[in-house]
Nucleic acid binder design. Structure first.
Ligand SMILES: [Zn+2]
Ligand SMILES: [Zn+2]
Ligand SMILES: [Zn+2]
Ligand SMILES: [Zn+2]
Lengths: 135, 135
DNA sequence: TTGAATATGAGAAAGCTTCTCATTATTACA
DNA sequence: TGTAATAATGAGAAGCTTTCTCATATTCAA
């Protein structure tokens, strides 16, 4: 299936791309930085450069396989696109990420945009807080 | 009044701080990057370094005088804290920023956080789109 | 199998932001 | 007002994340 995804996106099936996709698919943490992925590749003994990780993630994003988020704190985080739109709750102490989706909020955003004369292309709602475990 | 704000924040009243505060107060565009401010200072003939601009903005942020936003596109933008919380609609073509606040959305966020066991510290909702003029 | 097209690794470079440190300015108080 | 203690500044170096360059290696259609 991976192979199909890559071919559909017009990308050649290469070892770096398959390994990166595999990490995104099998990781129990769904939100990973490029460095996270790079480190996992090193640990697995793969000799894949950090530049390749960034390059591939950017291609995956363009192909719609992956979404890039800009949470506070510098590094972008990437997550495999699993179909369902959602927004994020991020713990500022431990970094835990909880996903949620609220149709009321989504609808209100559409209404606000249309009233302002904007054609929505995207949106990012991130709530920062302290999770139960960190309190 | 500016002078008071600075003193209250425990900051000495210096020329760079007053000039930067003045730019934030008088600019008709409310969302400025550090470079925007630096450029305006240069144009006004002030010899203030970019490092000072960043330093002062960070201090203003800590003092609650200014809010820092991380819209897409790398550079942070700063805006004078005028008391009323609001979220943002950003045009991806021209960069125009429209502010809005919706109590339904705010309330939903509080509910979602509390249900997830998070104590909210902050949130950022940014809708990206194409404004009327850019269509 | 072969060659055109594409991808990779390594390091350089870019873009934004923070740090360092010698110099200068502010402020409290004599 | 003068002075000392404290804090702020400017300039450039450095840090961090991300992208670029280019010589080499890989993929894949024919
Ligand atoms: Zn949403
Ligand atoms: Zn997510
Ligand atoms: Zn809000
Ligand atoms: Zn604003």
């Amino acid at each position: 299936m991976e192979t199909q995804d890559l071919k559909k996106a017009g990308l050649k099936v290469t070892l770096p791309r398959m390994k990166i996709l595999e990490i995104l698919e099998t990781s129990n943490v769904h939100h990973l930085t490029a460095e996270d992925i790079y480190r996992q590749l090193l640990e697995a003994g793969e000799e894949i450069g950090l530049a390749t990780v960034y390059r591939v993630l950017t291609q995956f994003e363009a192909a719609g396989l992956v979404t890039r988020h800009h949470f506070e704190g510098g590094q972008a985080v990437f997550e495999l696109e699993r179909g369902a739109h959602h927004d994020h709750l991020v713990c500022v102490k431990c970094g835990k990420v909880v996903e949620f989706m609220d149709e009321t909020i989504e609808a209100k955003q559409r209404q606000i945009s249309s009233e302002a004369g904007f054609e929505i292309t995207d949106h990012a709602l991130t709530i920062y807080g302290i999770c139960r475990d960190c309190r």
